[in-house]
Design a protein around this nucleic acid. Structure first.
Lengths: 260, 260
DNA sequence: TTATCCCGGA
DNA sequence: TCCGGGATAA
């Protein structure tokens, strides 16, 4: 059987909020080492990769590898009905076609349990190559979300350009042009406010706003976000989930349109 | 003439919010002992019973019994325009076809008064029998509202089942099944957080979510709600209005569907 | 408990 | 694009 227990169900809530706009369904791959989910988004443009390691759970048991296919909207509803500090326990029998969620309120004698039918989803196996990146930018996640949101007003795509001076986000369209430049900033007092740029080679890539914005839904998961870029390779937007793993999004750059 | 004065008009606001979704109009029955309103909801499924005793008012005078028929949406608009701590005075002449509301702001020299036309509504007289109940559950009203809301995601009806172990709310539908169990909890520090179950006989009844949710609009009136159940008898959901009376909702259980 | 902000629905 | 409801913070 499979059983995973987490003292703070809010983390799951946030994970679901961060992926349910991109994915209608998800196959959670459960093994001894933890829970993985990898899938192309509904429009088959970007890729979501979630990794929750077993050590991060307060209790974890997985006798046999199993794949739990679930409708993410339904799953989000289940988690929405959990209270703030609830403990959640997820259970599935090895050959079962349902999964159960039990929420225990901390302060109260209240136990809620939900049972959901599992779905049989196609397994697309996605090989994600390990890449060396030219630039790795670590910055406050709220800052990232804000910049993407603001620049989305100006155009459909955003150019991210990283040099040794810093990182520049640009968008342009009918209204005009917007540029936001961030220089490396090490803030020792508030480490999460730092902007750290690790650049081997300068790089300039263009991405579709829509996806960058969707990725920003993961903001509540972490104070910081990491953007990894390299020419002709998908951008990686990573949110670390404290003590538990990470959520990564992959998005291929737009091919430069030479409009002249 | 009729005159009733209440130092805190917010109570009326809350009462109106709690009934205006269920009732388009209401006949307020004014007598020496206070104000009553009893009516079937618009779809003639549930019943609303409001009782405000004259002692609870800061001034109360009712020379002759009279019935004030009002459109509740309009009445809610009138009260919505009252400020936070306003004092309200309701007046009607014995044979008048209008009712007047005067709001006095506490801190300010501001007096607003509104006059509304009365309506001639059919008097349906509703006998509500006094029943002995098998189970009486007293619980935090916010908790009740939350549970009903959460479970409404899963189905159109909710099963409430009370045993000596506690009370269980359940719903099921396409997404799956949800159960919320509450055990009796006496909290001496915060009495309003207690869950108190007074059970003579275990009972399990099914109700339409829609109405249970409507009843929950009364949550701001009181920290606690009382659910009284008995086989083949309408559920009573009662909110006590501190120092003034109560608001009760009655809803007949769904007949068990034996789908086999 | 109330006021504010954010998100989802119409 | 506007409005209402829910969640959250003070």
């Amino acid at each position: 059987m499979f059983e995973a227990r987490l003292l703070n169900s809010a983390i799951f809530k946030k994970v679901l909020d961060a992926i349910k706009d991109l994915l209608n369904e998800g196959s959670f791959d459960c093994s001894d080492s933890g829970i993985q989910l990898q899938a192309m988004d509904n429009s088959h443009v970007s890729l979501v990769s979630l990794n929750l390691k077993s050590d991060g759970f307060d209790k974890y048991r997985c006798d046999r590898n199993l794949i739990l296919g679930m409708n993410l909207a339904s799953l989000a509803k289940v988690f929405k009905s959990s209270g703030e500090g609830d403990t959640v326990t997820i259970k599935a029998q090895d050959d079962a076609d349902t999964v159960s969620f039990m929420f225990e309120a901390k302060k109260q004698d209240k136990i809620s349990d939900y049972e959901m039918k599992l779905m049989n989803l196609d397994q697309e196996h996605l090989g994600i190559p390990d890449t060396e990146f030219s630039c790795i930018i670590k910055m406050p996640s709220a800052e990232y979300a804000r910049i993407i949101r603001d620049l989305s007003q100006f155009g459909e795509s955003i150019v991210i350009s990283c040099t040794k001076e810093g990182v520049k986000f640009s968008a342009s369209g009918d209204i005009g042009t917007g540029n936001v430049k961030l220089a490396q900033t090490i803030n020792f007092d508030k480490e999460e406010d730092s902007v750290v740029i690790d650049m081997q080679e300068p790089v300039t890539l263009t991405f579709a706003c829509q996806y960058l914005n969707s990725f920003a839904k993961a903001t509540p998961l972490s104070n910081q976000v990491t953007l990894s870029m390299c020419d002709n390779v998908p951008l990686v937007v990573e949110y670390e989930i404290p003590d538990l793993g990470y959520l990564r999004y992959y998005l291929a750059p737009k091919i430069e349109e030479d409009e002249n």
